[in-house]
């Protein structure tokens, strides 16, 4: 059942939805020297795969998402979607930020409309449908400040789906939520993912979240970030969040990843 942690080599996959090849990145440091943030990342994610990245704070895991989305240009290497180089503003790659990026002056519905309007489209029926699908159909006319943290996340999920992406890049999307709301949102996300067959790359510092949600967990090293180890998650689908934690495989995997992660946290 349990597979050994493999080394950092890219798994030989025939068809990758998303491929990252030798991506390195440096930021200018305070003293004029460059700080290496990413160090030769190789990664291939299969269509429909749910992949999470865990790692110590500041290891560059969020930065990798920005590079994949095209928001940051890597110093070397490239990112491919369906084997073609990614450019910023490709709606097929959806990005969910850690911070709340709903427009505060727009209603929930107007926020969900935004990705369509950005590319000159309009489909209110679908936007309303998406709000209903994530459970906030009754709040289409509400402004973000009138919604709870969990509801705002739901609206953001609806907005993300409105741009009809193939790939979701999610940067600690539930990091700021309270524990209970977080569990609800994880269930919601699993449900959506199971019904849409989206490819997901999910960054989190919550090990339990990583294991519960994903098919594969990538462990980042301390800065400069590289993929130290990867673990396949041997849990059946569809999953129930509340049942996972009592699964012995879950516990075993949690302990193994945690021991390795702990070393990196101490280094960082």
């Amino acid at each position: 059942m349990m597979q050994e942690a493999s080394t950092t080599e890219t798994p030989a996959k025939l068809s990758a939805k998303l491929r990252v090849e030798g991506v390195s990145l440096e930021f200018p440091g305070g003293d004029g020297r460059a700080i290496k943030v990413l160090n030769g990342i190789d990664l291939a994610i299969a269509p429909g795969e749910f992949c999470t990245i865990v790692g110590p704070s500041g290891c560059g895991k969020s930065t990798l998402l920005s590079v994949i989305a095209g928001l940051l240009a890597p110093a070397s290497g490239r990112c491919l979607l369906d084997e073609k180089p990614v450019q910023v503003g490709n709606p097929r790659i959806g990005y969910m930020f850690q911070s709340d990026t709903l427009l505060p002056w727009a209603t929930a519905l107007d926020n969900v409309r935004l990705p369509l309007e950005a590319v000159g489209r309009k489909d209110d029926g679908r936007c309303l449908d998406l709000l209903r699908r994530v459970g906030v159909g009754d709040f289409a006319a509400s402004y973000p400040w009138q919604l709870s943290g969990g509801m705002r996340k739901r609206v953001q999920l609806a907005r993300l789906l409105a741009q009809e992406p193939d790939v979701l890049l999610m940067d600690e999307p539930f990091g700021a939520l309270d524990a209970q709301t977080k569990l609800l949102m994880q269930e919601e996300l699993l449900r959506l993912w199971e019904s849409t067959k989206l490819t997901v790359l999910f960054v989190t510092h919550d090990l339990s979240e990583a294991i519960s949600l994903s098919d594969r967990v990538l462990l980042f090293s301390a800065r400069p970030g590289r993929i130290k180890e990867q673990y396949d998650v041997p849990l059946d689908r569809p999953r129930q969040i509340e049942e996972i934690v009592s699964d012995p495989h879950y516990n075993e995997l949690f302990v193994r990843i945690w021991r390795s992660l702990r070393e990196e946290i101490r280094l960082s």
């Binding site: 920005s66 989305a69 095209g70 928001l71 910023v88 503003g89 490709n90 709606p91 790659i93 959806g94 990005y95 930020f97 911070s99 990026t101 427009l103 935004l114 990705p115 309007e117 950005a118 590319v119 741009q163």
Partner: peptide, 17 residues
């Protein structure tokens, strides 16, 4: 908040938008 702008960029929004 730069992420408001970044979010719009990832949607494919133009500069004038």
């Amino acid at each position: 908040d730069p992420n408001l702008v970044n979010a719009a960029r990832t949607m494919g929004a133009s500069k004038s938008f």
